[in-house]
């Protein structure tokens, strides 16, 4: 497509619309803009990534908005990716996270993108990873990822963010004991937001107790120098505690670098992403084969063995999959 080169030129010239379109292409798993992404190994053109997750109503968007305000005061350019689930039935979605970030409307150094988690397996994190690389290549200093903590989404945030912030509030009534399994393992920082409401100290206390009980079983570089997730209290609506939150994020970043954990993570993520890409490509091939190849489907329905059909599809990928996968 000649559109690609034109798009690339506009992207490199700093055209916001080209960036927006490139993210759309990535979302639909179109490989044509992959050349615009810089190599994932840190250095120039790679933005720091902070992820925010938490239950609905914890004030994540307001918190992100407050953090953007702080970063803008420091002169940093910021991009935000806010994800919301799509309906598994219609594919439609209502994405409303921008509303709480209106303060930054028309600030050319702030880019906000709403993404629907379209429900195709692995799709979100692959698309998110690519979008993050695009944002870095475009020149944003900081990427903030925000997602509602439902289903598996917080695990996906942790899989791509350098620092994962889990947001809680005193007013949701379910208390710390209801905390979702796995959340302690992924949180690098806890925020107790809406700390102007009664009960925030209790939430922080319970959290502290729980963390001391569940000291993470660290491996690798982290084993000798484990990271202890701090608990920050904020009132995002009043910009309170945001400096402390940013200090904690920076401190975690320094920890990643000095402990050697950053390299480990980078290596692990490269491997994970590669495995996901393979799975994604295989899935595409499978859908294609089962959709187009009447003989294969016929055989499958006749003998009822998905494994035999899978083997056949994998064999085909072996012969021409790489070529097709590159698009």
């Amino acid at each position: 497509m000649d559109g690609e080169s034109e798009l690339a030129a506009r992207f490199r010239a700093g055209d916001i619309r080209a960036l927006a379109r490139a993210i759309s292409l990535v979302e639909r798993r179109d490989p044509s803009v992959r050349a615009l992404e810089t190599p994932p190994k840190g250095g120039e053109g790679s933005a720091a990534v902070v992820g925010f997750t938490g239950a609905p109503g914890t004030g994540k968007s307001t918190l992100v908005d407050a953090l953007v305000t702080l970063l803008r005061k420091q002169g940093k350019s910021v991009s935000v990716i806010a994800t919301d689930p799509n309906s598994p039935f219609t594919g439609g979605a209502i994405l409303g996270d921008r509303i709480r970030m209106q303060r930054h409307a028309l600030d050319p150094k702030v880019f906000i993108r709403s993404m629907g988690a379209r429900g195709h397996l692995g799709g979100l994190s692959l698309a998110t990873r690519e979008a993050i690389r695009l944002l870095g290549a475009f020149g944003f200093d900081q990427v903030i990822l925000e997602t509602v903590g439902v289903g598996q989404s917080e695990l996906e945030v942790a899989a791509v963010a350098d620092t994962t912030v889990v947001v809680m509030t005193p007013n949701l009534g379910d208390g710390v004991q209801m905390i979702k399994a796995g959340i302690l393992e992924i949180a690098d920082i806890f925020v107790v937001n809406k700390a102007d409401l009664d009960g925030y100290q209790r939430v922080a206390m319970e959290l502290r107790a729980m963390l001391s009980l569940n000291a993470p079983g660290a491996t690798g570089a982290a084993a000798s120098k484990p990271w202890k997730p701090p608990i920050i209290t904020t009132v995002a609506a009043r910009q309170e505690g945001i400096d402390e939150l940013w200090a904690a994020i920076e401190s975690h970043r320094r920890y990643l670098e000095t402990s050697g954990r950053a390299q480990e993570l980078a290596a692990k993520r490269l491997k994970d992403e590669t495995a996901e890409v393979v799975a994604d490509l295989a899935r595409q091939q499978a859908r294609l084969a089962l959709g187009e190849d009447g003989a294969l489907t016929e055989q499958l329905l006749k003998d009822g063995s998905p494994y035999r059909a899978a083997e056949e599809i994998l064999n085909r990928i072996g012969s021409d999959g790489r070529k097709r996968g590159r698009g």
């Binding site: 799509n86 309906s87 219609t90 594919g91 439609g92 979605a93 209502i94 994405l95 409303g96 921008r98 509303i99 209106q102 409307a105 028309l106 709403s114 629907g116």
Partner: peptide, 18 residues
Amino acid sequence: RDAGYEVIYTGLRQTPEM
């Protein structure tokens, strides 16, 4: 949404520029 579109709602009192 129910018809399958992705709707980005930006809320009240938006200026044309926004």
